[in-house]
Nucleic acid binder design. Sequence first.
DNA 1: TATGAATGAGCCTTCATTCAT
DNA 2: CATGAATGAAGGCTCATTCAT
Lengths: 201, 201, 201, 201
Amino acid sequence: MSVKSKNLSPGKGEQTRALILTAALELFAVKGYHGASIDEIARKSGISKGLAYHYFQNKKGLLRAIVDHGFAKLDDLMASALTITDPLQQIIVILERTLTATKKDEHFWRLYFGLVLQGDVWAEFGAMFNEMFQQYSLHFEHLFEQIGAADPRAEAHILGALLDGIGLHLLIRGDAYPLEQVKNRLIVYYSQMADAKQRKT
Amino acid sequence: MSVKSKNLSPGKGEQTRALILTAALELFAVKGYHGASIDEIARKSGISKGLAYHYFQNKKGLLRAIVDHGFAKLDDLMASALTITDPLQQIIVILERTLTATKKDEHFWRLYFGLVLQGDVWAEFGAMFNEMFQQYSLHFEHLFEQIGAADPRAEAHILGALLDGIGLHLLIRGDAYPLEQVKNRLIVYYSQMADAKQRKT
Amino acid sequence: MSVKSKNLSPGKGEQTRALILTAALELFAVKGYHGASIDEIARKSGISKGLAYHYFQNKKGLLRAIVDHGFAKLDDLMASALTITDPLQQIIVILERTLTATKKDEHFWRLYFGLVLQGDVWAEFGAMFNEMFQQYSLHFEHLFEQIGAADPRAEAHILGALLDGIGLHLLIRGDAYPLEQVKNRLIVYYSQMADAKQRKT
Amino acid sequence: MSVKSKNLSPGKGEQTRALILTAALELFAVKGYHGASIDEIARKSGISKGLAYHYFQNKKGLLRAIVDHGFAKLDDLMASALTITDPLQQIIVILERTLTATKKDEHFWRLYFGLVLQGDVWAEFGAMFNEMFQQYSLHFEHLFEQIGAADPRAEAHILGALLDGIGLHLLIRGDAYPLEQVKNRLIVYYSQMADAKQRKT
DNA sequence: TATGAATGAGCCTTCATTCAT
DNA sequence: CATGAATGAAGGCTCATTCAT
């Protein structure tokens, strides 16, 4: 019975941890890492300040947990896209899913854009991040090669810039942003690129 | 006489003011608004903490001065581009000058990207910023209309996203970023768009 | 049956209690009472923080247990020395055993020297300690009377100062301290004092 | 005039600094380094907590200033004693002045005894302290050589132990300690030692 | 016995801001 | 114009202690 009673509140600890993470993510996103205080995070989580330090070593540690989780999700997203064999379809799917993710995980991406240029705080994530960045870039390049783009490398960087740029504007403008219109236009663009190749062949 | 003596060292005050602004810009850019302290800014400027409050009302006031100045420069850049009559040429020039400016005023753009999503600090600049943003967007749209783009509005947003996206990556990767390659590819893209129209006419 | 099972692992509780005491003693000794935390003590003992409060009421209670035990050992040492009838021999034995104890119970004596002057923490032990102190002093005085010292009271205080002074230096310098040399010199000194009397008689 | 008005409160800063040092010394002495809080020190100094950090970098920095000053005073004391040519007289003077200093700078010596064994805090002073310690020890040894002691090295360590031991007891017992009696007895002891040599010669 | 989640007070430190000079 | 002493609030973090399990 005692075993059962333990299972009655399964992962109480995990729940609390998640609570803190969620509150921290939002506050970090809106006010920035330095602008958000542990006190505020604790208050928003409905816990005491001290408990936050039971679950995370540091304010930095909290950030690390958030960033790690966010990047893991991004990696999953990309990994799942890799299973698509047609290069054009893969590009379109990446475009769609990435931008959908931006809207869904708004807080995380707000945090990401707010920190990525901040040498101060980002330092320790820089390495991991750059690796991912470059890996995606190479993969994009390969996709554009398959499609028959004139300059696959440039095209890969352009796609990267578009994803970040549109994501940024999406966060700034919210629902006022004409996402569908923009996405459709890009799909047309990439489709034409793929078409041109097929005609050549 | 007092007037003359003031003119003898023209703008000593202005010089000090500029010194503070420069130091503040760099520190705000690298460590974020909340991460940089007035003390540090004063030290970097070679002045006393108190003097900073002689030239600026506030930490916020300092930021305001920096942002105002940065936006004025951006406005100048755009205004000068407007004098170009050929739409394609204007697009190309905007592309080039904006990205060149990003490299030259790196600190300002680092600050911009770091704050633009931060409701906390950015609040008071949001209005002015959004106005500029929208105004440029409309102007871009007009340019693409002239060029004969299929969806001028989407194309305008795409250009905006590209400018911000490439700018962001430029700041992240520094000289490792293949700016010329990317720029050339975009120029080709926009030239073809313009060509298509001319052929139609 | 429950009694038997308790006796099967004799003093499991006692063992744990001792474990905690040992860890606490070392940490209190090295980092001071205020500098060592219950958390650290529990970790060093290999038990949970909560369990420490099962065995000891308090952080203060932990210290009390340590000090009580240490003083009891010192009392045993002195009591066993009292059985020696010849005063000179007793002085020599006290000298030797006390300094040997200092080396053996290094942690306790480190703690003792660290707290004895600290009104804050030592307050509650002061009474007991002063009583012992004075009692020993009187006993020393009596010994020096028997030996025929010129000023037994002064000589008693000198012996006390030597024991604490040498003990302190022993803890500071460790094995680098020339303990044997110093001890021998003192034995010579006290032997001469005793000799002088006998010649008189 | 403005120059004069500046001189009206000469060294106001120094005064405040000294105020803080005095308060800190007393609190560190009585409650130990870890037991005394900056808040308490500031309150006792009649200043704000923040100001303490204007004058000292750290809590450690405060301690460093105190210890440096205390050791400098001790060094002065010893240096002035060195000018005495007769070795016996020098020993007697060192004995007297050291113990007088202990009573006068009670707080510092309380602090010293409280920290000297605390690896945690004392670490950074250990080197400087050990150097002084050893230097004095060698000097004492030399003095006892001149006096013709049988074992100068042991005698030097004994003197050192006596100074620390008596100092410690002086701090513990206060005015109840029979300092004069003890001192006189030691003077007799060292005088006899010197006499013995002269008779030999 | 034993655990570790949870709390709240307190600690060291930083910081924006003011003010006398 | 210029300095830097001074303040008070707040921030990150630690810690002794309690309690449900």
